[in-house]
């Protein structure tokens, strides 16, 4: 029981990170119907920027943790958003309205480029960061010696995710930007005829997705304490899996899918084998899609003939 609870907490934490990345996939897919394969790399870039900011702050003597974290988040979000914007501008916008596979290939190309860019500029070796936020709340202390604990870091991650989720849901449902995004999702041509600046809306979608990925990247860095240039691929594939699992195009779906993948992975590692945790996640994805082709929360696609 204690073990189960502990795994649950760990799973939710991991799921939150996946969920934040998955939102980027889902938003982009919703609006332009493409898999932004480079999104995982955006997450990786976010974590590298966060790391560098941390080290710079340490070098100039700013060590008060809340300030450090705040600056890390802000800078990482801004710079990563710039990356998201640039990638869209260079690799996707020129292909808008053309052949469906073309942007997928540029996305894969971008992903290869970014991975190697970071590898070349920052080196291929892993970057360890000692844990900055320690301690937590002990929830249960059983006589058998198993302790159920939720660390401050986990609390921060989960709280941050909830705040961002609520914020983004409000943004999408209440603001005119969100309305424009939804209009573009429905019918890009019509939206543009009605005066929605489609290019700008799509750019903003990428910017939003990238900044969420940056938050996820920073939290990954702080939570796991090691990053390298390759983390983007695995996390990206998992997060995309999460987005599809939840029903691509749906924001709550992305979060739900992220949690599902996080939990599956943690429980599988906890009870069965660590080696096959990815197999478990992918198999569940395949099974869900075969029986529920539009994911958990996606709108079923009606085939009108």
């Amino acid at each position: 029981m204690e073990y189960f609870l502990q795994q649950l907490i760990n799973g939710v934490t991991l799921g939150s990170i996946y969920g934040l990345i998955a939102i980027g996939y889902t938003m982009v897919y919703g609006i332009i119907g493409m898999i932004n394969f480079a999104h995982g790399e955006i997450f990786m870039i976010g974590s590298f920027i966060a790391l560098t900011v941390f080290l710079i702050l340490a070098a100039i003597g700013i060590t008060f943790l809340p300030i450090v974290l705040l600056l890390m988040v802000i800078v990482a979000m801004l710079c990563t958003a710039a990356w998201g914007w640039t990638i869209e501008r260079i690799a996707y916008r020129p292909l808008r309205g053309s052949f469906r596979l073309a942007p997928l290939i540029t996305a894969i190309g971008m992903s290869i480029f970014l991975q190697n860019f970071v590898q070349v500029t920052q080196g291929a070796r892993v970057k360890p960061l000692p844990p900055q936020i320690q301690g937590g709340i002990t929830l249960m202390d059983s006589p058998s010696g198993i302790v159920v604990q939720i660390s401050w870091m986990q609390i921060i991650i989960i709280a941050m995710t909830i705040i961002l989720m609520v914020g983004f849901s409000l943004l999408i449902s209440k603001t005119s930007l969100g309305r424009q995004q939804r209009a573009c999702e429905q019918d890009r041509k019509m939206a543009s005829l009605l005066g929605v600046n489609v290019d700008r809306t799509i750019s903003l979608t990428f910017v939003m997705g990238a900044s969420l990925a940056a938050v996820a990247g920073m939290m990954y860095l702080l939570y796991y304490g090691v990053i390298d240039f390759y983390i983007g691929f695995i996390a990206g594939v998992k997060a995309f899996t999460a987005a599809v699992l939840g029903g691509i195009g749906s924001l709550p779906g992305a979060m739900l899918g992220g949690l599902a993948i996080g939990l599956i992975e943690t429980f599988w590692s906890g009870y069965f084998s660590v080696e096959y945790k990815d197999v478990a996640a992918f198999s569940i994805l395949a099974i869900v899609l075969i029986f529920m082709p539009s994911g958990l929360l996606g709108r079923p696609e009606v085939e009108k003939v």
Binding site: P94, F99, A102, T106, G109, M110, I112, F113, N116, V120
Partner: peptide, 21 residues
């Protein structure tokens, strides 16, 4: 050799943008 894949990725993007089909 370090820049091999870097340029490969970039080339993929450029060729595709140049000739999407």
């Amino acid at each position: 050799t370090q820049y091999r894949m870097l340029i490969f990725g970039l080339a993929m993007v450029l060729i595709m943008v140049w000739k999407p089909r």
